[in-house]
């Protein structure tokens, strides 16, 4: 079984419960393979949780869920040290963050302090409490969701924190036919419970290793950097994409190419993934907001502007 077929099995499995959201599933798996995390931004009830659950079930991983509330404390996320009277010692009890797949629900409802705790452990893949550091077992994949910021009672994530997410995705409502199909399936049973794992964690780790082997041609690297550089000089952009953003795109492209059954990245991969990877990494100037220009539009313009490499660099 090739890598692509393995990934395809996972996607097909998710498809059983998620209808008409193949692209989101693909992007989530891409992020998982690339070792990144995903921020899902959408209104409640469109299937964010279902998606993460299905993904977790498909790969046979442990699934943890943290519901963020305004009064949630960092220790509720990371874990606490408890005094064990028998051993006369403090013992660390890991919090829900220590899991393979973590759903951080409504992350913008909690205080910045708790948000930071979560995001730091996402970046480091470890938890530090009372000077004690615990590595979080791989694969570690956080899928955070947030309600659109216009909603009341939310703490918008700091821009720097957003950089920690590989993709920011929007789920969107399913289309009419997909929704009808969903209702029909729900009639029979709750399918999520019947979902079985199709690959093992071991296989997933193997796939993650394989991602690094996907070839990124020098021309493609230049293309990615060109796109990132363009965001930094764009007149509407206050803060452009960081080098971490370029790196993220490259990794995501590798994973995406692997999923597509290729061992090399094409400019199409870059063009496809850049909006998801860059969208949350640029800060627009107020003028852009006044003019109603969104980050998506700016990225779209950049992508039509930057020349796609179509020839090999002559090595002579």
């Amino acid at each position: 079984m090739t890598h692509a077929q393995m990934i395809d099995k996972v996607l097909a499995n998710i498809d059983k419960v998620m209808i008409g959201k193949r692209n989101i599933a693909e992007l989530s798996v891409t992020a998982l393979l690339a070792g990144g995390h995903v921020l899902l931004e959408d209104v409640p009830g469109v299937g964010k949780t279902m998606m993460v659950k299905a993904l977790a079930k498909s790969i046979g991983a442990s699934f943890k869920r943290i519901q963020f509330t305004p009064d949630l404390l960092p220790s509720d996320v990371l874990g606490v040290s408890i005094y064990n009277p028998r051993d006369m010692e403090f013992e660390f009890r890991p919090g829900p963050i220590v899991g393979n797949i973590v759903l951080a629900d409504e992350i913008n409802r909690t205080s910045p302090k708790t948000q930071s705790a979560l995001l730091e452990s996402m970046e480091e893949s470890s938890v530090t409490v009372d000077g004690e550091t615990l590595r979080i077992p791989q694969p570690f994949f956080v899928m955070a969701t947030q309600n659109p910021i216009e909603y009341e009672g939310t703490y918008p994530l700091p821009e720097a924190q957003l950089d920690r997410f590989l993709f920011k995705l929007k789920m969107g409502y399913p289309d009419r036919l997909a929704e009808v199909e969903m209702l029909q399936r729900a009639e029979k049973a709750v399918p999520i419970e019947e979902l079985e794992s199709v690959i093992t964690l071991e296989e997933l780790r193997e796939l993650q290793m394989e991602v690094a082997a996907v070839k990124v041609d020098a021309t493609i690297k230049r293309y990615i950097v060109d796109c990132a550089a363009e965001t930094r000089t764009n007149p509407y952009v206050y803060l452009g994409v960081s080098p971490r953003g370029s790196l993220a795109v490259m990794k995501a492209c590798q994973a995406f190419a692997l999923m597509r059954g290729r061992d090399y990245v094409t400019p199409d991969d870059v063009k496809y993934l850049v909006p998801f990877a860059f969208g949350h990494r640029i800060i627009l100037k107020p003028e852009a907001r006044y003019e109603g220009i969104t980050a998506e539009e700016i990225i779209d313009r950049i992508l039509t502007k930057v020349n796609v490499p179509i020839e090999r660099i002559q090595v002579r």
Binding site: P267, T304, K305, V306, N307, V308, E311
Partner: peptide, 27 residues
């Protein structure tokens, strides 16, 4: 093949199907 493909691209361009710089080959 490289030469031939690029010839074809130029020929298609002359034919009237223009490729803008930001268009990938598969597009």
């Amino acid at each position: 093949f490289d030469k031939q493909y690029n010839r074809l691209l130029r020929q298609m361009d002359r034919f009237g199907i223009k490729r803008s710089g930001g268009m990938t080959l598969s597009e």
